[in-house]
Simulated assay, not measured.
Amino acid sequence: MSVIYVLLAISITVAILFFLAFILSVKSGQYDDSYTPSVRMLFEDEVVKPVSKSKSEKQNKPIELNK
């Protein structure tokens, strides 16, 4: 039974160490992306389709008569 307590203490200690290492690496900028911004202009832009007006908006538009 005492082995479970020892293993539990060791696993919690290792988990805390990994968490601290992760926090330190994030703060030091390890995961910052410095490559993508320089080549972003080379990527093709996605085509954006214009939003069509709904039927209700078309019906509320005043009718213009050609004179």
Rank of each mutant, 00 (worst) to 15 (best):
I4W: 08
R40Y: 15
S54N: 08
S11N: 15
Y35N: 12
Q30L: 13
I12S: 01
D45Y: 10
T13N: 05
I10C: 09
A15H: 02
S56N: 03
S56G: 09
S56D: 09
S11P: 00
P62C: 00
G29C: 05
I23T: 03
S25R: 05
P62G: 03
D33N: 14
K49W: 08
S34R: 15
E44T: 13
F22C: 02
V6P: 01
Y5K: 15
L8I: 15
V3D: 10
V51K: 08
E57G: 00
S56M: 03
Y5N: 14
L24I: 04
Q30A: 11
V26Q: 08
V39Q: 05
G29A: 00
D32W: 07
S34W: 09
K67G: 10
Y35Q: 07
F19R: 10
F19K: 06
L42I: 12
M1R: 05
Y5T: 11
V3R: 13
P37V: 00
D32I: 08
V47A: 14
P62N: 00
T13W: 05
F18S: 02
F43Y: 14
K67R: 09
L42G: 14
Q30W: 10
N66R: 13
V51D: 01
V48E: 10
D32F: 09
V6L: 13
F19A: 10
L20Y: 12
E46L: 09
S38C: 10
S38M: 11
V51R: 03
I63H: 11
F18G: 07
F22P: 00
V39T: 04
V51C: 02
V48S: 08
S52R: 08
F19C: 06
A21F: 09
I63C: 02
S38P: 02
L20K: 06
K49A: 12
V47M: 09
A21M: 12
L17Q: 13
D33S: 02
S28I: 15
L24D: 02
K27D: 02
S25L: 07
A21G: 11
V26Y: 07
F18P: 01
L65T: 15
F19H: 04
S2C: 05
S25Q: 07
I63G: 04
S25D: 07
V26A: 03
L20F: 09
S34T: 11
P62V: 01
S25M: 10
A9E: 02
T13G: 12
L17S: 03
Y35W: 14
D32H: 12
I16Y: 02
I4E: 12
V47H: 14
I12P: 01
F22I: 06
Q30M: 13
L7W: 04
D45P: 08
P37L: 05
V3T: 06
V47I: 14
V51W: 01
E64N: 02
K58T: 06
L20I: 12
R40H: 09
A21P: 02
S25C: 10
K27T: 09
A21S: 07
K55M: 11
S56V: 10
F43K: 14
L42T: 09
Q59G: 05
E64S: 04
T36C: 05
Q59T: 15
N60T: 11
L24E: 08
E46C: 06
V39W: 01
K61T: 04
